[in-house]
Amino acid sequence: MDQDERLLHASSFGAAAVEYAEHRPDYAQAAVRWALEPAPGPRVLDLGAGTGKLTATLVALGAEVIAVEPDPAMLAELRRSLPAARALPGSAEVIPLPDASVDAVLAGNAMHWFDMAVAGPEIARVLAPGGVLAGLWNVMDDRVEWVAGLARVGGSAAVGPRDTPAGWRAETADMHLPKAGEAARFGSPEQVEFPHGQLRTADSLVATLATRAGVLVMPDREREAALDRIRAFLASEPESARGEFTLPMLTGVLRVRRL
């Protein structure tokens, strides 16, 4: 994805902020705990916080959270759903916080949108020594047969390369993280996956996939055709055709520590 396409996709979510808040999944608490495990204190920056899916989990775990989000519509939804949370406009490339002011920087389904050449030094700047940088991604467990079928039918716009376990590992293994010799020294990155699941109906799963950037930027006719294919598939599968079901998922975590 070139820079212009990346910016188009990254800026697409505001138009669906209400739907994003309603339908996007939360994060496995075990994954968030593991991400924070080496952090030297409770101060956490949720960077690219969106509508607050990860923020809410961090609050539930007792962290002192600051949420930073560039899109005004997404930020408004975050403030509406979590009025007590400190939520600021800003981006990974321009973080509105002082030096060494947080013990961890977490990003939920957001780090792949960052320009890490710029964001890396900014993240290093706001992290205290010993602090943690972690990206979290919710992925569909395509080791389950019907989920693999959904991934095939949905196509790469609805189920992209980071949205299955093998794809997530490959994509994030190559992600540029701050390295030795940059603004600060970081240790070696670690990747771990945690079981997760979301209660869904066929309609709510279609609504979830409709908030994917690749789907949001489609022409209307193409988007409706893709969603119709997914609806037909879900109606044909015994696991998803009869009311509520649990969508098998994993929360993958990429973690690196500032030395």
Rank of each mutant, 00 (worst) to 15 (best):
L133W: 10
E122G: 08
A10L: 14
L247V: 12
R152C: 06
W168M: 15
A107M: 10
D142W: 06
A63F: 06
Q191S: 01
T251L: 00
V118E: 04
A73V: 01
A202T: 10
M249F: 05
V139F: 07
R125P: 01
S240K: 09
L250K: 10
V44T: 04
F194Q: 05
E224R: 13
G155K: 11
A39V: 05
A158T: 11
R162M: 14
G135Q: 06
T208Y: 14
V139A: 15
G187R: 13
Y20N: 11
G155M: 05
R33V: 14
V18H: 11
P98E: 12
E222F: 02
A92T: 04
A17G: 13
A124R: 00
G155V: 06
E224I: 09
Q29V: 15
V65Y: 04
A128W: 03
W146N: 10
V105M: 15
P70H: 00
H196N: 06
A85D: 11
W113S: 02
A10S: 13
R242K: 15
A16N: 14
E244I: 06
P70Q: 09
R223P: 04
T51I: 05
D203C: 02
D99A: 13
L106F: 05
L97F: 10
V68E: 01
A100H: 12
E5T: 15
E69D: 09
T55A: 04
A166D: 12
E64N: 03
R255S: 06
D142M: 04
P178F: 05
A183G: 04
P238G: 07
V18N: 08
R169D: 08
E64A: 12
L199Q: 11
P40A: 10
A184D: 03
P121I: 02
P195D: 13
D163T: 09
P83R: 04
M74F: 00
E171S: 13
L209G: 05
G62Y: 10
S188P: 02
G62K: 04
L8A: 15
G135Y: 03
L97S: 06
A31P: 08
S236T: 02
G252Q: 10
G130N: 05
V105Q: 07
P238S: 08
N138G: 01
D115A: 11
L227Y: 09
E5A: 07
V32G: 02
A119K: 00
T211P: 03
P121T: 01
R143M: 03
F233P: 02
A124I: 04
G160M: 12
A124M: 00
W113G: 02
D46L: 11
A117P: 09
W34N: 08
T211V: 07
T55D: 04
A184F: 00
D103G: 11
G108A: 09
G14P: 02
V65R: 04
G160L: 11
T208I: 12
L47T: 07
G108V: 13
G135A: 02
V65N: 06
R162Y: 11
D142P: 09
E37H: 14
E93G: 15
A235I: 03
